[in-house]
């Protein structure tokens, strides 16, 4: 394919005076077929309440790409979800951690830990998810109307 294009260009260049070929190439370069506009915007979901963890509010970033075909003026809009974040300020205090001396024979007993190491998924009861999805849904609805 590349060979073919090179060949065609070569033939064209040979057929035309060198100055005209340059002008034609320049003219072609300044008349694009499509216009692409990309913008990103952050949407903040409604505040949803959880029992223990206080308020949950989801923030999403959406990238909107508008492609306009110059000739037909046909416009296509795509919206892509770039990121989902749930910044939360917990409204409770840490309780003291202690170890229960009464161990069960077949189970390994430990004190509750609070880790923050990177994981791929989190398994938990669904309250946070319900609040999360309520907030997420409202953010997505805003983005759809954008």
């Amino acid at each position: 394919m590349r060979k073919f294009i090179t060949l065609v260009l070569g033939v064209t260049a040979l057929a035309l005076p060198i100055v005209d070929a340059f002008a034609a190439a320049k003219a072609q370069a300044t008349v694009p077929k499509k216009k692409v506009i990309t913008v990103s915007k952050t949407f903040t979901g409604a505040i949803a309440q959880t029992d223990r963890w206080g308020d949950m509010q989801v923030r999403i970033v959406v990238r909107k790409t508008t492609t306009i075909v110059i000739k037909t003026k046909k416009k296509t809009v795509t919206r892509k979800l770039i990121s989902v974040k749930a910044p939360v300020s917990p409204n409770h205090t840490d309780r003291s951690i202690y170890i229960n001396e009464q161990a069960l024979p077949t189970l390994i007993q430990e004190a509750l830990q609070a880790q923050s190491s990177g994981v791929d998924m989190v398994s938990g009861a669904t309250d946070s998810s319900i609040a999360f999805q309520t907030s997420l849904q409202s953010a997505i609805l805003q983005a759809k109307a954008w």
């Binding site: 939360v88 917990p90 409770h92 509750l112 609070a114 994981v119 791929d120 989190v122």
Partner: peptide, 21 residues
Amino acid sequence: DASWRVGIQHPTLRQKIAGVV
């Protein structure tokens, strides 16, 4: 990564996990 890491939700600290599978 060589495996999946699943955090177990900490019951009182929303942004923390109580363990990893």
